[in-house]
Amino acid sequence: MAEPIIEMKHVCKSFSVPVKGQQGWKSIFYRKNQTVDVLNNINFSIDEGEFIGYIGPNGAGKSTTIKLLTGILYPSRGDIRVMDYNPHRDRYHYTYHIGVVFGQRSLLEFDIPVMDSFKLYQAIYELDGRLFQERLDEFTHLLKLDDLLHVPVRKLSLGQRMRCEIAASLLHRPKVIFLDEPTIGLDALSKHEIRQFLTRINQEEKVTIILTTHDMGDIEQLCERIVFINVGNIVYDGPLDTLKNNYITHKDIVIVYEEPIDVPDAFVSLLKEKNITTYTFNVPNAEVVSIVPALLQLGAAYDVSIHEPTLEDVVKIIYSNHIHA
């Protein structure tokens, strides 16, 4: 069996933050700090070519994990290996092999044309002129960069800039790519184009991709495996389908009757919502087939539909379960 390309073992990360509410002039010279654990004992491994969705609510520790994996942060405890490198210790050599996109930060020079930033990257990553040109041509075609390369970054729209950011991060053919909210704030078309591009390089070049996002559309369309983190702990690590099956225990049956009905006691506990003549019942998966005919008997109905919760709903359930736990 092949060695995993990324491995995190017992990784912890804590930050030191000032204790709130310190008053008085003494606090000018001395501030009490406390340690906040952002990641607690994180363990996972990722094989080459996997496309991982790394999700969780705000403050869960997603970005911290990405920063640890990219060598930006030092772990407080634990061991991180990516392609046999220790990211923070071997940072210089390691970064030749990774690509990183931060959706909320630009890697491109703001005031000058995109192409000039690309040329700087060519020098930094020591890319051969011919290979650079080939790669650039490929990206220009796939990401539709023709009209953008000679425009200063400050004049690009968010979607255009993000396409250029992704190209800049991948020019050197990295083996692992870290994407931190790459589709944040983008319109539907831009998202679609970026998703298509990522799928393609994942499948054709066998690039390993780790994606953090709040957009469940990204996850559903791109990732086979989900790592779910909450309050610094991994709460789920497995296939997307299993996640859905574990959490989708009920379906919504929506029936529109011709006139208001009286819901019998046996069905009251299933009634989720009522809106004039539209009734929504939340029914366990196993009972859907048997209950639908009974519900249709309650009155003259002219429409019925069955809805499965979306991944967005599933995630909401998990977030709230863990917040209230």
């Binding site: 930006i72 970064t95 990774i98 930060r105 990553y125």
Partner: peptide, 16 residues
Amino acid sequence: GELNSHLIKPVHPFLH
């Protein structure tokens, strides 16, 4: 955290 963009490249972050 703007220093991040220099740390993720094969460069000496300060010089870069």
